[in-house]
Design a protein around this nucleic acid. Structure first.
Length: 297
DNA sequence: CTAGGGGTAAAT
DNA sequence: ATTTACCCCTAG
């Protein structure tokens, strides 16, 4: 009856958040069409975005329009603490940046390149965007994807290695399909049936990020953990952030070394290394953005 | 198309 | 048993 449930991934939530920041809340269709987010949100409808945003907002400020009524009725005998004063501005800004939303609606000097404020550009998204934009029938090969991303964005030092690992990883996850050195975006998205079928197929793969029969070494680094760390880092002092970034870099190097060493069976280790480096990369970005508010592209 | 109401499977 | 969080429906 209802739907089998398809939980939102942290990536999707992040993309939605960035989309709202960029286009404003309510421009769901616009956000959906933006190539920067279509890669992540390609299996959501505009209505899905709207609903999810409602849920997230409710979580953030405590009172969305939704559960006012319910709470008022449910908690029948509330403490005589406060009456029905309408404005519940009081709510704490729970996290660091789900906050203002409503204020951002429009007028800013048109920011074109996502870099100033933040918005961590995910390699996932870039790859999806590249493939989507290139529109090569039969998929795009690694070189073309790399070229596209390098032209469009700032690329990290050993970007090629990162890209290779990521492509491999995305293929393993089932988000990309590799055919003769060319990559295409995975399932039957733009065609007839968007959900129902493929959600069952992929729900499992999408949930678990690192299936690792661990040897005694590297710790698992999932994407959500990265997000968490980054979020935490924005609240740090520069010193703390610097320390964290340094630690992240060290860990990334260790993970990469590990991956190279075990190159044969290193599919998963490589994913770990990639994740660690993605974190390090984002960490450095955040840190630099702090020290000098300069644009870096 | 978007906003809001409402239903319900899944989680706690 | 209650809450959460997706999904669907429909008016504007």
């Amino acid at each position: 009856m209802g739907a089998p449930k398809q939980k939102w991934t942290p990536e999707e939530e992040a993309a939605l958040k960035d989309g709202v920041i960029k286009h404003g809340a309510g421009k769901w269709r616009t956000i959906l069409k933006d190539p920067e987010f279509s890669g992540v949100l390609y299996l959501r409808s505009n209505v899905d975005l709207k609903d999810k945003w409602r849920n997230m907002s409710v979580m953030a400020n405590g009172w969305g329009s939704r559960d006012k009524a319910r709470l008022a009725v449910k908690r029948t005998s509330r403490f005589p603490k406060q009456e029905e004063s309408a404005t519940e501005l009081a709510a704490a800004p729970s996290d660091e940046e789900i906050v203002d939303v409503k204020l951002i609606t429009a007028p800013n000097t048109t920011l074109q390149i996502p870099s100033t404020k933040r918005s961590i550009v995910r390699l996932d998204n870039l790859i999806m965007e590249a493939i989507t934009s290139l529109k090569e029938p039969g998929g795009s090969n690694k070189t073309n994807i790399a070229t596209y991303i390098e032209e469009q964005y700032w690329a990290p030092p050993d970007f090629k290695r990162l890209l290779s690992a990521k492509l491999k990883y995305l293929t393993a996850c089932g988000r990309l399909i590799k055919v003769k050195r060319r990559y295409r975006i995975a399932p039957a998205l733009s065609f007839s049936d968007r959900r129902r079928n493929h959600s069952m197929l992929f729900s499992e793969a999408r949930q678990r990020v690192s299936p690792r029969f661990d040897r005694d070494d590297i710790k698992i680094v999932t994407k959500s953990q990265i997000d968490l760390e980054l979020a935490r880092m924005r609240n740090m002092t520069p010193q703390e952030a610097a320390a964290a970034a340094a630690r992240a870099v060290a860990e990334a190097e260790a993970a990469i070394a590990e991956a190279e060493e075990a190159a044969r069976e290193a599919e998963v280790a490589e994913a770990d290394a990639e994740a660690a480096q993605a974190f390090a990369e984002a960490a450095m970005k955040t840190l630099k953005g702090r020290n000098n508010q300069k644009v870096m592209v």
